[in-house]
Amino acid sequence: MASLYLIRHGQASFGEPEYDRLSPKGHQQGLMLGKAWQTMAAPDLVFTGELCRHHQTYEAFNKAYRNTAHQEVTTHQLAALNEFDHIDILMQSEKQWRSYQDLVDYFSSLPDAKNNLKQVFDDAFTKWALADSTGNYQESWGVFKQRANTALQLLIEARTVEQQTILAFTSGGIIAAIVQQLLALSDQHCLTLMRQIRNTSVTKIVFSGERVSLDYFNNYQHLEQVGASWSTHR
């Protein structure tokens, strides 16, 4: 059977004016994963989404991975691996900020700014996914899930018979939506899974012919071995 490894990006810059870039910790998480992968099966195909944090995570991974004799693999970009637009979801929440910068400035003036922003985002996200998916969002929850499932099919169909190991650097929402489909979970369970996915964690899917199944979910052993502080959600 062939294997597809869905890899969540490293810690991004949550609460900063430019979210879509890795924090210093996120970059180090990518290096840790690359080092750990030296004992894993060499990838035959590598995909990333279009987001900066996806590319930066793969670059850090590859830098550590190639310290051995492993040959670099050509990467392919797949828009279907992009995360939902969290800025749009926040803009559609009860507080109508004119821009993401307005939102950042507002929360920066509060004590414990990141935790306050996290709570507002969690509320806005739940509203998008469970309560108001027909609002004025650029992409509804239902359409997002369909896109995630399309990504899975495209990744499976991309390989040749000889290619057995695929890596896809993506985001937590995409991973959770794919797992939801494979396990026939409810939307509420999908949201619960999404909140558990660690940065640079690995979810493995195995497939052969029409059979596609989940092998394991949210493996972040490469972080646990270093210390609990490296196992981040955002």
Rank of each mutant, 00 (worst) to 15 (best):
Q71L: 01
A79K: 15
L81H: 04
A69P: 02
G10A: 06
Q29H: 05
K118T: 11
A228D: 15
F121P: 12
Q188P: 03
G30V: 04
F144P: 11
L4C: 07
A80D: 15
G227N: 01
A148E: 05
Q181E: 10
S23D: 02
A124L: 01
G34K: 05
H233E: 11
I156S: 03
N136L: 15
A64F: 05
I87V: 14
E50R: 15
V161P: 13
W97E: 00
A176N: 00
H233I: 15
L4E: 03
D132W: 04
V212A: 04
R66W: 01
W141S: 11
V120Q: 06
E157F: 03
T150N: 14
S140V: 07
K145I: 06
N199R: 10
E94K: 06
N149R: 15
F61K: 03
G26L: 02
N115S: 10
D122Q: 13
S99R: 03
A168M: 02
L90E: 01
K204T: 12
A69G: 08
Y137L: 12
F84E: 04
S3T: 08
K127N: 14
L33S: 05
G15N: 02
I175E: 03
H55E: 11
Y19E: 09
Q101T: 08
G30Y: 00
H233M: 12
N218V: 07
V226K: 15
Q153W: 11
A228Q: 13
A69N: 12
I178Y: 01
F144R: 06
S133P: 10
T160G: 10
Q11L: 09
N136W: 05
Q196W: 02
H76G: 10
T165E: 01
Q164R: 03
L183K: 15
N219S: 15
V104A: 02
I7R: 05
Q180D: 05
Y58H: 13
L31N: 07
R147A: 06
L214H: 02
N136A: 15
E210C: 11
N219Q: 13
L130M: 13
L191K: 07
V226D: 08
R195V: 02
T203G: 11
K114F: 04
A113K: 09
